[in-house]
Design a protein around this nucleic acid. Sequence first.
DNA 1: ATTTTTTGTGGAAACGTTCCCAGTTTCATG
DNA 2: CATGAAACTGGGAACGTTTCCACAAAAAAT
Lengths: 335, 335
Amino acid sequence: MAATIKDVAKESGVSVSTVSRWLTGGPVSTHKREKIQLAVQKLNFVSNGAARSLVTKKTYTLGVLLPDMYGGFYSEILRGLDQTAQERGYHLLVSSSHNEQREIVRAIQAMQGRVDGLVVMSPDIDAASLQSNLPARLPIVLLNCYVEGDAYDSINVDNYGGAYSIVRHLTRLGHRRIALITGSLVNHEVRERLRGYEDALRDAGIEVASSMRYVGDFNEPSGHRGALELLHTPERPTAIFAMNDGMAIGAMAALRTLGLRVPEEIAIVGFDDIPTSQYLEPPLTSVHVPIFEMGQRAMERLLMAIQEANAHIRRQEKFPTSLVIRRSCGVGQRS
Amino acid sequence: MAATIKDVAKESGVSVSTVSRWLTGGPVSTHKREKIQLAVQKLNFVSNGAARSLVTKKTYTLGVLLPDMYGGFYSEILRGLDQTAQERGYHLLVSSSHNEQREIVRAIQAMQGRVDGLVVMSPDIDAASLQSNLPARLPIVLLNCYVEGDAYDSINVDNYGGAYSIVRHLTRLGHRRIALITGSLVNHEVRERLRGYEDALRDAGIEVASSMRYVGDFNEPSGHRGALELLHTPERPTAIFAMNDGMAIGAMAALRTLGLRVPEEIAIVGFDDIPTSQYLEPPLTSVHVPIFEMGQRAMERLLMAIQEANAHIRRQEKFPTSLVIRRSCGVGQRS
DNA sequence: ATTTTTTGTGGAAACGTTCCCAGTTTCATG
DNA sequence: CATGAAACTGGGAACGTTTCCACAAAAAAT
């Protein structure tokens, strides 16, 4: 068994209270302090976090719920979360692969009593079931979740604006047949990006054709499949807009195997601007999303919510995107 | 305040013991079960993890210590760890950015009582200080750490063999001036890879030149700087071996800005074979390391150690690498 | 019908801390 | 040298669970 505070007290001949006071930085006489330190060393004592947080009601741990962990996007988010947490002396309790409502709730419940707050990232969670399953009082920040109203702190991206601007960029370059590789359509972010795509086409006087659309799943292989499929359409697209960089990468690989040159024969653009994208050949034009910063910001807001407790004012933030023009769309500066 | 088990007991008119028994799946009469369920629903009760693990001494949480979180390597490791943990009903308590000995120890101590075991990944931790600071009995698996003897379970990569084989590949292609971009030389993995590089050169009758070496830090920018520096040497290298793919990517970007074609004018190879590498142009020849699998395996071994408790037999595993020949070294099959 | 087993029940003692409280010592200060 | 403040001390009650125990009621076996 690991040594407890009682063992230390006995070994050093002081009371439990005094050892505890030493642990928490209270005033202890030099004499006793030395004895305690000796005993701690000897017994290899480390205080038990569970017991501690049971009484203090602080865990210095924050829960993070992710739908997945694959790829440059989630790892950047996690990095942003982790760095900020780390700076403030917090740890992260991570749990991924949650797509279903029920799973998320289960994971949240398992974290109860082990975390001081929660960052939930799940594009398809619904607010109602969150509310009814969440222990009251647990500070929470929603990242890229769709919720109406101001019941939660949330952080989102301007999905509509980003998609609109990159598709408009393509239309301005003269493209008229712009194919689309989407993620799952139940995903709210996907729907927003879709709206941006369609509006940009319409505003350019282009008809939206459903043959120009392939439903992927945000991973490389689906981008690959999507590109192959879209090239079979009677009127071959001159450009492909993939709803994230992962699928754009997959699509580019597919085009390469077909011997199609990017961007000369077909343009391709993505969304997210993950770190990898700049190193592709040709470098990928994409909608820049400040991924790392969003992670940071989510964590900052969560820590704020924890600190301010009930005085906390909830806010919904929407991060702007920006167009990063590289060579894959056919006109960028070299990079 | 969140509701406690006592509140539930009072609300439903049964004893605390009975509620607890219901929670843990013990036998409870239908009648009381219903009452309890009602009360739980009404009070929105979720049992407190800290209290629970204080008495059961199980947390269903595993600690993970990483030196950093940036890049394809760590995120793959983490994914492997997380997936396996998830499958077995465990969560991950993650803490990164630990390079110094002291920081690691502090992080481990902070996790005491909150985790059932630990995966420590820190190429420059030393076994002695681990041992003296670690609470006895806490199962632990070392990932890519250098420790002598069999005091710990550990998982490593065949760094020497990997480096040797990729450098030999280059010499067989006729390269004689093979430059090297390393990571920090205090890192044990770096030293092993260095050894492999040097032996491969010697075995090919090539003299090891210190002018052909640039000390980087495993991140892209240092690869970029390294490539620029190495091209200034009197005898320009015909190939560059970067000790990880991140630096290889940085180096490739540098060569591109200089207008040097890869692999025609200069070959470049990496180490790790992160997911990104296959999508580069040209695709990067690298030493494949089963990153995800190593994460999985580390977690499996940790869970074993936990399950078997004192009957556990420690083992040191070394994962083999394999050469992945793509185009960046000048001879690969197209991909 | 009696005994034995199973099933269900609540009281109370843990688990390893912190922190309040009441008390004791130490130490300037007038 | 009294006096009040400050520093220090240990006892013990929390914190929210589980689990051991003793026992009662119901079911099964004799």
